[in-house]
Amino acid sequence: MTSSIKVGLKFCGSCNPHIQVGQIYREIKEEALRAGLDLKFRPWDEPGCDLLLIISGCPADCAERPAHAAGEVAVAGETLNRNPCSRGRLAKEALRSIAKNL
């Protein structure tokens, strides 16, 4: 994959952080670099995003979704797209899910 992909990024607000959302984001970015995937992370409300990445501190996954209908990957505590995922695998699996959604 060579063309750049715009990923809208949204955090929940971290009132109950089971995971450190900023840390997960950095790990996903590093995983993308390692995988040679050209992801451009942008503010969630910027128009024209190819995909939305929502990172929530806990499984409540309460971040509001924007109106536009881009595909979505949701990390929420130790879950990925509502399925359990251990902390150690979160970034790798989230990246896999992003790639699958493109």
Partner: peptide, 17 residues
């Protein structure tokens, strides 16, 4: 960005963040 999901919102009066 980590906290704006809770600390910001769209105004019902102006539509602005």
């Amino acid at each position: 960005p980590e906290f704006e999901g809770l600390l910001t919102v769209k105004s019902h009066l102006t539509g602005k963040k």
